[in-house]
């Protein structure tokens, strides 16, 4: 990130923002590009909640969960339609880049992306999705934002610290993240700075998943490829086991 000097102190310069319409393209599953910014506070968008503009200036998540609305032919309850698809199918259609792999006692999260920053971001969302179904949380009228900083001394420790920080934020501030923007992924100092957006978990209201106790180094694997060689075309992927 470029810096500028003001009164003898170096400041980081935020990158220039792209025009809003262009930024929306990433998640425009329902023609969100055509909407104007004035719509952004309308809380009645329901299904397309994940695709609406973010209230926070400059928030440009690299990974975000959108609401998957199945096509309802007979207008029946959504849950029924949903039950016909397996979890993996739904996940694929929602376009999320994580999955859960078999582990006897705990859960192994497999996340991927075009670069490590994206894979880290999806791993974080995978973690939250296990604790509460994230699609319930997207499009909430009150989005909360928070900056997350973590540091380590290699890729493993950095991932561990990053996820631990988010888990800590959940357990102390009850913040459920549905979108993650990685602002800085520094491999020299091994630091990560991210802005996450999400909603507050309300005991008794938010649907419960399974509690994640901690992040582990057990069988942690972080893979980066120069050129995309694997079948799915992921440049970066990671495996992390979380303790249930």
């Amino acid at each position: 990130m470029p810096t500028t000097e003001l009164e003898g102190v170096a400041h980081e310069v935020l990158p220039k923002r792209e025009p809003r319409a262009k930024r929306r393209r990433r998640d425009g599953s329902d023609g969100a590009e055509t909407r104007t910014t004035s719509e952004r506070d309308g809380g009645d968008e329901g299904e397309s909640g994940g695709a609406r503009a973010d209230a926070r200036e400059g928030f440009e998540p690299i990974a975000r969960v959108t609401r998957y609305a199945p096509e309802r032919e007979d207008g029946g309850p959504e849950a029924e339609t949903r039950a016909e698809e397996s979890e993996d199918e739904i996940r694929a259609r929602r376009g999320v880049k994580y999955e859960y792999k078999d582990h006897t006692a705990d859960i192994q999260i497999h996340a991927w992306g075009d670069d490590l920053a994206e894979a880290y971001a999806w791993a974080a969302l995978g973690m939250f999705d296990y604790m509460t179904p994230l699609e319930d949380c997207v499009g909430a009228p009150q989005m909360r934002y928070r900056e997350i900083r973590a540091s380590g001394h290699d890729l493993d420790t950095l991932l561990f610290a990053f996820l631990d920080e988010l888990l800590f934020t959940f357990h102390t501030e009850m913040l459920i993240c549905t979108a993650v923007q990685v602002c800085e992924f520094n491999r020299d100092a091994w630091t990560i700075r991210a802005v996450v957006g999400g909603t507050t978990f309300v005991d008794g209201q938010t649907r419960q998943g399974t509690e994640i106790k901690a992040i582990t180094y057990s069988a942690m694997k972080i893979i980066e490829r120069e050129t995309s060689t694997d079948a799915e075309g992921h440049r970066a992927e990671l495996f992390v086991i979380v303790d249930i």
Partner: peptide, 20 residues
């Protein structure tokens, strides 16, 4: 069985974990 699954490298495609 857990050990066998671990030895079968194709089964876990990059993931996998140490058996007990």
């Amino acid at each position: 069985e857990e050990l066998a699954a671990y030895c079968d490298a194709t089964a876990h495609r990059g993931g996998g974990y140490s058996p007990a």
